[in-house]
């Protein structure tokens, strides 16, 4: 592995100062489950690695604040998947967190790291989109709240400004009952990078939010206000027509070796139908 310097700031202010001082030569280290691979293969060559795991502002765990669930940036997937509030109120996120890598990976990988990598295949991206999450970022100018749908640009690129650090992800508690689900396609049942990810949430008004990933440069959120997808008696053709609109934003790369575009697009439809069915079923069960 290339040589680099290591810094472990004790405060957010210190971390921001380090980021400012080193600019593009610095990389933030959270769980390290992606960064260390890249440091080893040479695709990331920072001069300084800034470990943010001991910054109190990022370590708040999972807490409720003003009708929102706030997940501190250093919170690992294991804790998210196990949290009773996440499981009950943000089921799709719990499901997504529980399929990120193996147990060992989930014990290290953080939610903030997952979204900051901005991998189109990131499992937690799609549930955050359907739950309308907000990314909280601290920067030289103070705190900034970025709606999650405005956060992703393309693989490895977000709208985070230079010098900013994600401190938390906030999830607004839904007003009424909702049903949600997260699904994915992989090449085996054991842990694998997904060739399609899809989350959906339906609420009592019949509004359906669907987010899907790994089929384009960034995950896509589509909201169906028509109520057709959630309508148990709507004809199949009508639902299929809506789903075609929903998935119009998919543009899988032909270069991927994980699955062909044809298969990904077909699976998007299969996963969509299945996730909606699961979400409706969950809502019905309360």
């Amino acid at each position: 592995m290339y040589a680099f310097a290591y810094e472990r700031p004790a405060t957010l202010a210190e971390a921001l100062a380090l980021l400012e001082a080193h600019g593009p030569d610095a990389r933030l280290l959270a769980g390290g489950t992606d960064l260390i691979i890249r440091l080893r293969d040479g695709s990331a060559r920072p001069a300084v690695v800034i470990d943010v795991k001991r910054i109190p502002e990022l370590c708040g765990g999972i807490r409720e604040e003003d009708g929102r669930l706030v997940i501190g940036a250093s919170t690992v997937m294991t804790d998210i998947a196990a949290d009773a509030r996440v499981r009950r109120r943000f089921t799709a996120l719990a499901e997504a967190a529980s399929v990120v890598g193996s147990v060992q990976i989930r014990n290290r990988a953080t939610l903030a790291g997952n979204i900051c990598n901005a991998s189109p295949a990131a499992d937690t991206a799609t549930p955050l989109l359907v739950y309308d999450a907000t990314v909280v970022a601290a920067g030289p100018g103070g705190l900034r709240r970025i709606p999650i749908d405005d956060f992703f640009v393309r693989s490895g690129v977000t709208t985070l400004a230079p010098g900013e650090i994600v401190t938390a992800v906030e999830l607004p508690f839904p007003d009424g009952p909702i049903g949600a689900a997260h699904t994915r396609r992989t090449r085996r049942r054991g842990h694998d990078l997904a060739s399609v990810t899809l989350s959906c949430a339906v609420d009592a008004t019949g509004r359906t939010r669907i987010a899907y990933g790994s089929v384009g440069p960034r995950p896509v959120l589509v909201v169906d206000e028509s109520g057709i997808l959630a309508d148990p008696v709507a004809p199949a053709e009508a639902k299929a027509a809506v789903l075609e609109t929903v998935f119009a934003g998919a543009s899988p790369s032909p270069r991927s070796m994980r699955a062909s575009p044809e298969y990904r697009l077909a699976m998007l439809r299969v996963l969509g139908a299945r996730a909606i069915a699961t979400a409706l079923d969950r809502m019905a069960r309360g």
Binding site: G32, T33, I36, I37, R40, T78, S102, Q104, R108
Partner: peptide, 26 residues
Amino acid sequence: LVGECGACTVIVDGRSVDSCLMLAIE
């Protein structure tokens, strides 16, 4: 060395981790 095989699993502060994906300094 990419956190897939688990041959390097150790327990750090009570949790299993792939020690190939953790800097010693951490």
